[in-house]
Design a protein around this nucleic acid. Structure first.
Lengths: 202, 202
DNA sequence: TCACCTTGTTAATGAGCGTTAACGCATTTC
DNA sequence: GAAATGCGTTAACGCTCATTAACAAGGTGA
């Protein structure tokens, strides 16, 4: 895995600031002038990099969904390749860990993810929905390996609920006021496992 | 408790439809004409009942927060009055039950609750925040009675996370596609307890 | 019957905002 | 060195939309 050390491109700067602003005040609550100001250029200057405000949101949401799905698939594949054979419990732990990393590192994006989906053009929205659905179904499969008694609709509800739990990080206060990243991650992880376990014992 | 059977007032109709529309497309995504149309009058006609669009949102959010807090306080008080003495576990169950009822019965409001708070005038926002904080602290107190080893910041994080879990109902699909209200409520309740239990065993 | 309040209506106003136009200036490319 | 290209700028356009103005009709009470 190549860690990038080069400076972020202008496009990336814009996307990052737009994500933050959209998460803070909503898509309609942010003007292009503000996004421009956040990266040191004027509002219309953004149009050299994006077709419009919608395009920024679309790229953000598609990017998020794709990243989540790709990461999850990688984790499942890694588990399948382990010498000791696939351990469903450890795969689930890995999925949880990945989602928590994302929720803690990209809190603005997590917020956008389930808040501004309706603002997308039809074609983009369908794409994002499809990626999200695949992500969910991947989780559902793993969860049902760990808890075979769980019916599929129940497992799906449980997965959505655990997403709600993990995605609660934006409500946990400013990053500074948290008890430390590792501690928070550990707490969320234990709670997610506890929630699944309770769902599994129906 | 008097169950009201009289017809809803125009104000109430408006608030209900506004809540639904705001939840669906966001505060800025809904025009006053749409809200008016939803109750059979014209956009400006709304101004006979509300000072403005902001006022509708404010009344909704203050109402939600107040209702949640009042209901929770009532449940705690009822538990204190029980002949067998106060059982913290049962109080927690009662709080969870109340929150689930609300999340299932008023899904649009739950969505608004953590999505559009920033759109309020300063004074209203402070009021809502204060009510929310009191609600959270009430939960934190009960949770720490059930799990005395839990440090206060941890308990608070756990409470926020469980709110995230319980408030996930809007993502669980259309009301029709759910496995039935009782089943869903039971699942959410078990998961919440499981999550708290896992948080408590640090 | 007349005044008045309630609850509507449609038309006009005015601000905000996404987008496009027209232009400037480095830097690269041939 | 000239042309093209990348990346900005400011000004202007046009649309949406919350809000207000002006007016109408039904009901109620003196």
């Amino acid at each position: 895995m190549a860690t990038r050390t080069d400076a972020p491109t202008r496009r990336e700067q814009i996307l990052k600031e737009a994500a933050r602003l959209f998460a803070e005040r909503g898509f309609h609550g942010v003007g292009v002038d503000e996004i421009g100001a956040a990266v040191g250029i004027s509002g219309p200057g953004l149009y050299r990099h994006f077709a419009g405000k919608d395009a920024m949101l679309a790229e953000l949401l598609v990017g998020i969904s794709g990243q989540l799905l790709t990461g999850a698939r990688r984790r499942v594949a890694e588990a399948d390749g382990e010498p000791a054979g696939r351990d469903p419990g450890r795969v689930l732990d890995s999925l949880i860990e990945g989602h928590i990393d994302f929720a803690l590192d990209d809190r603005p994006l997590i917020t956008l993810h389930d808040r501004e989906l309706d603002r997308l053009r039809d074609t983009d929205r369908k794409l994002v929905r499809q990626l999200q659905r695949q992500y969910v179904e991947l989780w559902v499969g793993v969860v049902r390996e760990v808890y075979p008694d769980l019916a599929e609709p129940t497992a799906r509800s449980a997965v959505h609920s655990v997403f709600g739990l993990l995605n609660s990080t934006p409500h946990l206060g400013r990053p500074g006021s948290l008890p430390g990243r590792g501690v928070t991650a550990g707490l969320l992880h234990r709670m997610a496992r506890g929630a699944f376990a309770a769902a599994g014992s129906e």
